[in-house]
Lab assay of single mutants.
Amino acid sequence: SPEVQIAILTEQINNLNEHLRVHKKDHHSRRGLLKMVGKRRRLLAYLRNKDVARYREIVEKLG
């Protein structure tokens, strides 16, 4: 489901952010981070168009 995919991506994004705080010059990982953020944004847009209630619920849960 989109909610699960968004939750997994959010966790991976948070982990990668911590990694990049330590390894500032790791541009390869930064590119992966940007791809993940874009994918999460697309999934959220899809969910917002399909079911606003589910969209609001996941945004509330994940912050």
Rank of each mutant, 00 (worst) to 15 (best):
H23M: 04
I58A: 05
L9C: 02
P2K: 06
R30D: 06
G38L: 14
I8A: 09
R41F: 10
N17L: 15
R48L: 07
H27M: 13
H27Y: 11
K50L: 15
P2I: 15
V52H: 11
L9M: 05
L43D: 00
V59F: 04
A7L: 15
L33M: 08
E3R: 02
Y46F: 09
H23Y: 04
E11S: 07
R30C: 15
N17C: 15
N14Y: 07
H19W: 14
R54A: 11
R30T: 06
L16I: 08
R48N: 02
E18Q: 10
R41K: 10
V59R: 03
E57F: 04
K25R: 11
L16D: 01
E18G: 05
I58H: 00
K35P: 01
L9G: 00
V37Y: 13
I13S: 00
H23D: 05
A45K: 10
R21P: 02
H27G: 08
Q5W: 12
G63S: 12
E60T: 08
Y46Q: 13
P2V: 15
K24M: 09
V52D: 08
V22K: 11
E60A: 13
D26Q: 05
V52T: 09
L47M: 04
D26Y: 04
I8Q: 09
V22D: 09
A7R: 11
L62V: 04
E57V: 06
A7E: 10
K25A: 11
A7G: 07
K50R: 09
H23E: 03
E57R: 04
E11H: 08
N17Y: 15
L9S: 01
G63P: 05
G32H: 15
R30V: 09
R56Q: 14
I13F: 02
V59L: 13
L44T: 00
V4L: 12
I58W: 04
R31L: 13
N15R: 12
P2R: 05
L44E: 00
A45L: 11
I8M: 11
L9H: 00
R40V: 14
N15K: 14
L33E: 01
G32S: 14
N15T: 11
Q12P: 01
Y55I: 03
K24Y: 08
R41E: 08
Q5V: 10
G38V: 14
S29N: 06
I6P: 01
L34W: 11
L62P: 01
Y55R: 02
L44S: 00
I58N: 00
L62E: 02
T10C: 08
R42E: 12
L62G: 02
M36F: 04
H27T: 07
R41Y: 10
E57S: 05
K24C: 14
G63L: 15
I58R: 00
R21H: 04
N15S: 10
L43K: 01
S1Q: 07
V59P: 00
E60K: 12
I13M: 01
R40G: 01
L43M: 04
Y55N: 02
E60G: 07
A45E: 14
T10Q: 03
H27D: 08
Y46R: 10
L34Q: 11
L9Q: 01
Y46T: 10
G38F: 10
Q12W: 12
K35C: 12
V52G: 10
P2Q: 06
L9I: 06
R31V: 10
R40D: 00
L62S: 02
V52E: 15
V59K: 03
K50W: 08
G32I: 15
Q5Y: 09
L33C: 10
R40A: 04
R30L: 14
L62R: 02
A45W: 10
L16E: 01
N49M: 13
R40F: 13
N49R: 12
G32C: 15
R40N: 01
R40I: 13
K24Q: 09
H23T: 04
A53N: 14
L16Q: 02
L9E: 00
V52L: 15
R48F: 13
K25D: 14
L33T: 01
R56Y: 12
T10V: 09
E57K: 07
V4Y: 15
S29H: 13
H19K: 05
S1W: 15
N14L: 10
E11G: 04
H28S: 14
R41S: 11
K39Q: 14
L20H: 03
A7N: 07
R48Y: 13
L34S: 07
H27W: 08
L20F: 07
R56F: 12
N17I: 15
N15V: 12
A7P: 02
E57Q: 08
R41I: 07
E60Y: 05
N14S: 05
K35F: 07
R42H: 06
I8L: 11
L16Y: 07
A7M: 15
R54K: 13
S29C: 13
P2M: 14
H28F: 07
R56P: 02
K24V: 10
L44P: 00
N49W: 12
G63N: 13
V22C: 14
V4M: 13
I58Y: 04
A53T: 12
S29F: 06
S1F: 15
L16K: 02
E11Y: 05
A53P: 06
D51F: 03
G32N: 15
L34V: 09
V4T: 09
R31C: 12
V37S: 03
K35W: 09
H23P: 02
E60S: 10
H23S: 04
R48D: 01
L9K: 00
L62W: 05
H19E: 03
V59M: 14
R40T: 03
A53F: 07
R48I: 04
R42T: 06
I8V: 07
L9N: 01
K35Q: 10
Y55S: 02
G32A: 15
R42G: 04
I58K: 00
A45Q: 11
Y46S: 09
R30S: 06
A53S: 11
I6N: 00
D26E: 05
K35M: 09
H23K: 03
R21W: 02
E18W: 08
H19Y: 14
A53W: 04
D26C: 08
K61V: 06
I6Q: 00
E60C: 11
K24D: 11
H27C: 11
E11Q: 10
I13C: 01
D26V: 03
L43I: 07
L47S: 00
L34M: 11
L9F: 02
H28V: 13
N15W: 15
L62D: 02
R31T: 11
S29E: 04
S29W: 07
H19L: 06
S29Y: 06
R30Y: 10
L33A: 02
N17P: 01
T10D: 02
E60N: 08
M36R: 05
R54Y: 04
D26S: 06
P2E: 12
L33Y: 08
E3N: 03
K25Y: 10
N15A: 13
V4A: 12
L43Q: 01
R41W: 10
E60V: 08
E57I: 05
N14K: 09
Y46L: 12
R41L: 11
H19F: 10
R54L: 14
I58Q: 02
N15M: 13
T10Y: 03
S29Q: 05
R54N: 03
E57P: 00
L34N: 09
H27E: 09
K39T: 07
V59Q: 03
A7S: 08
G38C: 15
N49E: 14
R54W: 04
I6D: 00
I58V: 07
I8S: 06
I13Y: 01
G38W: 13
V4N: 09
N14T: 05
R56C: 14
H23C: 10
L34P: 02
I8C: 11
G38R: 14
R21E: 05
H28Y: 07
R21Y: 03
D51H: 04
P2S: 05
L16C: 07
H23F: 04
L43S: 00
V59I: 13
A53E: 15
A53G: 11
E18D: 09
E3Y: 04
L16H: 03
S1M: 07
M36P: 01
I58P: 00
V22E: 10
R30Q: 06
N17G: 06
Y55M: 03
V59E: 02
I8F: 13
L44W: 02
N14R: 11
L20D: 02
V4R: 10
N14E: 05
I8D: 06
D51S: 05
R48G: 02
K25H: 11
L33N: 01
L62H: 02
R42N: 05
P2D: 06
R56N: 14
K35A: 10
V52K: 13
K50G: 04
K61W: 15
E3L: 05
A45S: 08
K35L: 13
E3Q: 04
Q5M: 12
N15G: 07
G38E: 15
Q5F: 08
T10P: 00
L16A: 05
S1P: 09
E60L: 11
L43Y: 03
E18Y: 09
L34H: 08
S29M: 08
K35R: 09
H27P: 06
L47Q: 00
R54G: 04
Y55Q: 02
S1D: 12
R42P: 00
N14G: 04
L20Q: 02
L33S: 01
T10N: 04
V52S: 10
